[in-house]
Write a protein that binds this DNA or RNA. Structure first.
Lengths: 238, 238
DNA sequence: CGCTGACTTGAATTCGCTCAACGCGTGTGG
DNA sequence: CCACACGCGTTGAGCGAATTCAAGTCAGCG
């Protein structure tokens, strides 16, 4: 865990400068925001926020993949969302963080004290507008996930998961329309995949095995997936 | 379906003037917004927006209860959310409406052309801020619902549903802490409840019957529910 | 009074869960 | 270098909750 004060021209060099909620800010605004944020490194597995805690931090994801999750009284976990570079993290304008945040891979985030961020956002409508657009998009994505959780069987869930994963991990290096992201490294363990899909680890494993046996995917190693038959996988996702 | 041009001092008399996203606007702003909106009546069962359509309308709910839903390829439906008076409806700053909207009860909504609303919002940060807060709250609620869909069994789902229903329908007439909303009329059919919870109609019916047999609730008629043992029901919701 | 649609109840089935054993790669210590 | 343990994933058998399929009940209404 390292905390480095943001350098003056830090944002200018930021990998997500043009995609995150800061994209619409001008130079002077960016410099102001610069003074509030700190870049922070997270190791895979490190927790940034805890479910139910006072909401003291918000952050932009610069690099890496993180999960949002909460648990039931009887110890089961449900992953509520996966966040990728340029996504926004945390609960502005709220008292408590309604879910835990944990890094799935090594990650860099740009963290703000919530109070600082809230104040800055209220004074800079362009930032707030970006945040609103992002929140609306996230709400749409979350609602689509409800359809998966409520109405899909295990095969459909796993197929949908693989397709979404391929698409979202691809965001950076779009290698042409044909071959885009057909091979990737899962940032989640089998247990975590199960927690995303509302299944058990065994069911996920069985579906992976079946897809492989049917020639839809290949599994070179535990964490690697190659999608061989994209269209067929889409059929399974129905 | 009736459309009445908003009168000049229409908003001033609006039942949700202090709770909806317009709450923070001053008189001159309200009057401007007034000119853009139209009050519209919806009969129970009437559809306001269709999944996948171009997003032309947004609205505030003034009175009544509506559902947001989408369907799977194989004809199953999942209800994504229930909206109540003072809630906001539709997808501003977006191309298409990602879900259908249908009135569950007779309802009044205050509709805007999306283009008008978007422009107004961008020029009035106070409105946009309210909308942001509401969207963040809705996202929190939606994520909590994911836990229900992904990790709860039928008993927990139905118990949670009844408790949430009692709470949200109560918002208007809070009849004291003891007796608040313990009796209410369901705005949803059994099928719709099943679609909210990701269950089948039969399973919902069986759970209702069991809760009644166990003395936790009473069912005076098909659409009426009385919660007899609030605490016990909370236990079932785990 | 019988019809219709919504709901309930019952029986059989099935999909995913639970429990348990096993395999495999990795790191550690002798 | 091998032996071993450990974590993670896979596989199998049996079970059970929720679904499916099929009747039956009930309220409202012409």
């Amino acid at each position: 865990m390292t905390e480095i004060p943001a350098a003056v021209d830090f944002c200018a060099a930021c990998a997500i400068r043009n995609r995150a909620i800061c994209a619409d800010l001008d130079t002077s605004e960016i410099n102001l925001l610069n003074g509030l944020g700190r870049r922070r490194h997270l190791k895979a597995g490190e927790q940034l926020l805890w479910e139910g805690d006072e909401a003291v931090l918000v952050a932009n994801v610069i690099e890496g993949v993180l999960k949002l999750s909460c648990g039931t009284a009887d110890g089961k976990e449900q992953i509520l969302g996966i966040v990728y570079p340029s996504d926004f993290l945390g609960r502005p304008f709220g008292e408590t963080t309604p879910y835990g945040v944990e890094a799935l891979t090594d990650a860099y985030v740009c963290v703000f004290q919530r109070a600082d961020f809230d104040r800055f956002a209220r004074e800079h409508p362009r930032l707030e507008h970006k945040l609103l657009e992002r929140t609306l998009a996230e709400l749409d994505r979350t609602r689509r996930w409800m359809l998966l959780l409520g109405r899909m069987n295990a095969e459909q869930k796993v197929a949908t998961f693989l397709l979404e994963m391929a698409e979202r991990l691809d965001a950076g290096g779009c290698a042409g329309p044909g071959k885009r992201g057909e091979q990737f490294t899962l940032p989640l363990s089998r247990q975590q995949i199960a927690d995303v899909l509302g299944l058990t680890i065994e069911t996920v494993s069985r579906q992976f095995t079946r897809f492989k046996a049917d020639g839809l995917i290949d599994l070179p190693s535990r964490r690697e997936v190659t999608i061989l038959e994209h269209a067929a996988l889409e059929d399974r996702a129905a």
